[in-house]
Each structure stands twice: as C-alpha cells, then as structure tokens.
Amino acid sequence: MGKNQYVVRRDNGWAVKGENNSRATTVVKTQKEAIKIAREIARNQSSELRVQGKNGLFRMCNSYGNDPCPPKDHK
C-alpha cells in the first residue's frame, strides 16, 4: 500500500501532498483539480484520499486500498 494522499488548502490554491512528505506533490488553483490528481495517485498506490475543507477540517475520505467488505467491527 502506498502513501495516503491529502488535499490541503494553501494561500495560493490547493496542494496534493503524500502522507509524511515535507513538500507538496503539486499545487493547483482549485480544490476540484487537486482532488482529481490526488484520487488518481491514491488509486494507483491503493491508498486513501483525504480532503480538507475550507474551514481546515477534513470533509471527505475515500479508500482505494484492500478494505474488507463488509468492514470488520472494531470492539
């Protein structure tokens, strides 16, 4: 499984960043464009995509890895 991908807000647009990377993979003008790029990377790496909203909180998370279906109960 590859690195989880994050879409985060920047002063000059939206960044796509791999988990624990110190630098962004790319910075684009729109959140929609950043999500498209991050989704493709997450699919290729069988990882997760997490999207930050304008308020700084994460608003969306999608997994493209090997999740059990149905999910296991965590007790």
Rank of each mutant, 00 (worst) to 15 (best):
D67C: 07
W14C: 05
A24Y: 10
R50T: 03
P71W: 08
N4D: 10
V8T: 06
E33K: 07
V8Q: 02
M60V: 11
N62A: 11
K75V: 09
H74G: 04
R50G: 01
E48C: 09
I41R: 10
N21M: 07
N20S: 11
R9Y: 00
R43F: 09
S63Q: 11
L49T: 00
K17W: 02
Q5H: 00
K75L: 10
N62Y: 12
R39K: 12
D73A: 10
P68M: 01
V16K: 01
T30K: 15
L49S: 04
N66W: 09
K36Q: 14
A15F: 03
S46T: 03
G18L: 02
Y64W: 11
S47D: 06
G56H: 03
A38G: 03
R10I: 02
N4R: 04
M60S: 12
N20D: 13
K29F: 10
E19K: 08
I35D: 13
M60F: 05
G56C: 05
D67F: 09
R23E: 15
N20G: 06
K29P: 11
A15L: 06
I35R: 05
T30E: 14
M1R: 07
Q45E: 10
R39G: 06
W14P: 00
K54E: 09
K29N: 10
Y64T: 00
R59P: 08
I37Q: 12
K54D: 12
E19F: 15
A24R: 00
V8R: 01
Y64D: 08
Y64F: 15
S63A: 13
V7P: 10
E48R: 13
I35H: 00
I37P: 09
P71R: 12
K32N: 13
T25E: 12
Y6W: 15
T25H: 04
G18W: 06
Q45K: 08
S22E: 14
G18K: 11
E19L: 14
P71L: 09
K54R: 10
K36E: 13
N12K: 15
K54W: 05
R59C: 11
E19P: 00
D11Q: 15
K32E: 15
A34Y: 05
P71T: 13
Q52T: 01
M1L: 03
Q52R: 15
S22T: 12
D11L: 14
R59V: 14
R10H: 06
N66Y: 08
P71F: 11
N12T: 07
K36L: 08
A38P: 00
K36F: 06
N20W: 12
R9P: 01
K29L: 10
D73Q: 08
S22V: 05
Q5Y: 02
Q31F: 04
G2H: 01
S46H: 14
Q5S: 04
K54A: 15
N20I: 02
G13S: 08
A24V: 10
F58N: 09
I37W: 15
Q31V: 04
K36Y: 12
V7I: 07
S63T: 13
E19I: 09
